[in-house]
Nucleic acid binder design. Structure first.
Lengths: 210, 210
DNA sequence: ATGATTCTAACATCATCATGTGATTAACAA
DNA sequence: TTGTTAATCACATGATGATGTTAGAATCAT
């Protein structure tokens, strides 16, 4: 039996979802609150739900901030964002804050039920549009680098050394070459990347711009 | 009418999927090849498919490498990886290389069909297990920082300067304080983070560990 | 063969960084 | 009041980094 909680400020929607889920054989939906604050009170006094459905736009604390707090106190609760927002910032902030799923509000009741079942089985419910944005985000990660700035594999070795916080001497030791060779490579790397400090190389690299 | 292509080295699976999709009213599956190389030949001489289903493990060029090439030549083709691999590296490499979806091989034929329809409607087909990994990846992005290493806001200002590749002198100018004050802050930051170079601070910061 | 890259290396020099020590001021909590 | 923390500044010194110049050996494509 899965216990579900709802945080949603629209009473109509809240009641509708609660009644529907409560009606299901394998689900129990004992709590549906208006705000994160109320849900936090409930959580202190009752058995935790397995899954929370949560809106983003709420009176008082936002759903994203609320999720951070709930996840830090009760990390075992899975939270599905259920919202009208489909802008990338809200999506990624939610996921970073610990959301286990992200559904848009036009999702039908049977689909919501299915999503919860999906989640309990180790899946991650996402509306197709959301999945698309998430995937696009990854697609966009790679192609920042430009052709001219391609580093040779030896130069990459050097950069990896920098990434590990090594000094020239330590890189030289690790790669078994002289410190002056390291200097030479660094010079070439700086030219290719149009920078002139270790710091900038590390920043570029970790930002995926190499 | 959606045109589908398949790259899959197992003849049984390949033929099965091709026949099934070709049988559908709204789909046409004129090409199913053994390798990326063959598919590339086909693409040069025929109308492009709208969607490619592609395996990762293939004779000759890997599916991920192949996808990079296909996407660079024909960016309008959507590619769905269809594979047994569920390790994070393969998943993320695929997504970064431009995959529009990622399905595991146990996916049923009707689900594959549904995924293609989903894709054409702007969705992003993913097996639930895959979606879970993707979401977990985001979840893991935020919460690494630990309490003791919390930096003060002034220290954050200094770190931001480092992130921009500035020297002590430039940071001092930007914040309108003396260079020795910058040094002092840097010393404290190093103590808190247990590091001893600009490079390590930048690396930690960009890896989300601050 | 010839030229272009890449990797290797040395020498030199000035700038910047890392670190130690010590101190003043303000804000805030015990 | 006293202790703590944050932010500010100074002086000093050895280590490391950034940059210029030069050059031999290996690889590879034209």
């Amino acid at each position: 039996m899965a216990i579900i909680g709802i945080v949603e400020d629209n009473k109509k929607i809240r009641d509708l979802i609660q009644r529907y889920l409560d009606m299901q054989e394998e689900m129990d939906c004992p709590v549906a609150t208006d705000s994160v604050e109320e849900m936090l009170e409930f959580l202190e006094e009752h058995q935790h739900p397995d899954v929370l459905l949560m809106d983003i736009q709420l009176p008082g604390m936002s759903g994203i901030k609320g999720m951070e707090i709930i996840k830090s106190k009760y990390p075992e609760i899975d939270i599905i964002m259920l919202t009208v927002y489909h802008d990338s910032h809200k999506i990624f902030d939610s996921l970073k804050a610990g959301a286990s799923g992200y559904l848009l509000k036009h999702t039908s009741l049977p689909e919501i039920k299915e999503s919860i079942e999906n989640l309990m089985k180790g899946g991650a419910p996402m509306s197709p549009q959301i999945a698309r944005k998430v995937i696009t985000h990854f697609n966009d990660m790679a192609p920042k680098k430009n052709e001219e700035s391609m580093l040779t594999s030896r130069e990459q070795d050097i950069v990896n050394g920098l990434l590990d916080g090594l000094s020239y001497k330590m890189i030289a030791d690790r790669l078994d070459i002289s410190i002056d060779t390291v200097r030479a490579h660094i010079r070439n790397i700086y030219k290719k990347l149009h920078v002139n400090s270790k710091a900038e190389v590390i920043a570029k690299s970790l930002r995926g711009e190499i």
